[in-house]
């Protein structure tokens, strides 16, 4: 499959159909291939595709979009949701991308014990189909029994407020504010993040207490609410192994319950439930209030 991807990429690049290729290349270790742009045919020999190619390349299309000409991008099924979401928000133009959907068996990671396992997001994966593509390479062969992606969220919901606060304090106090989650997140694509901006004095707001990073993560979860496709990149890249996806999934679960099932990135048109109001079907605000 990797070979088929290289051949097709070379064809498109040499024919001038695309100006560059966005894919993965070998990293320092076999288990961390990294996202890369390829602009010459010979460079494409370094293109890799295996179970460790977990990085969602959609977000990099924001930069590619500013360049002239088309960019070939390889997207796994789940990555196409992020691409749709970025198109919806006018951050990337569909016309400037040539999307090759690539099959996915589920991404692997190496844990602290140096053992290879399946990424959490892949254990609960529901996104088995490419939502946007120009052509497809490889079959999607995920046949595993999937776990319920909201199970962990429900567990946290069942905790008492004190337990829940303790749970999150334990999680979020590990944060070293490396910003990896924000930088990798395809939804976090603001030109200037509010946490880097002197405009509203918000850059210090994250540092007000000893439990200092709670604000950062909670505000980030709110900023991507209704836009997060649950691609799981935040948790994947976190060096402190914080379960950041739980915050986003809590939002998704609430949105589904209050406004009806919604999957961000299902298409590039439907307005998000939080930025669209329908007096007949939307939850009354008091419902939210009663839930506590």
């Amino acid at each position: 499959m990797q070979e088929r991807m290289r051949i097709r990429a070379k064809e498109l690049l040499t024919s001038g159909a695309v100006q560059r290729v966005l894919g993965w290349k070998k990293g320092d270790f076999p288990y961390n291939p990294e996202p890369a742009f390829f602009t010459a045919e010979h460079e494409l020999d370094d293109l890799v595709y295996d179970r460790f190619c977990a990085a969602n390349l959609s977000g990099y299309m924001v930069e590619a979009n500013k360049q002239d000409g088309k960019t070939l991008v390889f997207l796994k099924p789940c990555d196409t949701y992020s691409f749709n979401q970025l198109t919806k928000e006018n951050r990337v133009s569909r016309d400037k991308a040539w999307i090759i959907g690539v099959g996915c068996e589920g991404n692997a990671e190496v844990d602290e014990m140096q053992e290879i396992g399946l990424l959490e997001r892949c254990k609960v994966c529901t996104k088995t189909e490419h939502k946007v593509f120009d052509e497809l390479i490889g079959e999607d062969i995920q046949t595993r029994e999937k776990e319920d992606r909201f199970e962990q969220v429900s567990d946290v919901e069942k905790m008492s407020p004190d337990e829940r606060f303790g749970f999150w304090q334990n999680q979020l106090s590990r944060c070293i504010r490396c910003n990896a989650c924000r930088n990798v997140c395809p939804a976090c694509n603001c030109k200037k993040c509010v946490f880097d901006s002197g405009k509203y004095d918000t850059e210090q707001k994250a540092n007000v207490t000893s439990f200092e990073e709670q604000m950062f993560h909670i505000i980030r979860a709110y900023h991507v609410a209704g836009r997060c496709t649950d691609c799981g990149e935040c948790s994947r890249v976190c060096p402190q192994a914080i379960d950041l996806h739980l915050l986003n999934r809590k939002m998704i679960k609430d949105i589904n319950e209050l406004y009806g099932e919604f999957q961000a990135g299902d298409d590039a048109e439907t307005p998000g439930p939080l930025t669209d109001y329908d007096a007949d079907t939307d939850a009354d605000p008091s419902v939210v209030y009663e839930r506590g």
Partner: peptide, 15 residues
């Protein structure tokens, strides 16, 4: 609007 900060996402237009 502050054009230097605007991402062009259209969310404001929608709401």
């Amino acid at each position: 609007p502050d054009e230097l900060y605007c991402n062009g996402c259209s969310v404001c237009e929608n709401v």
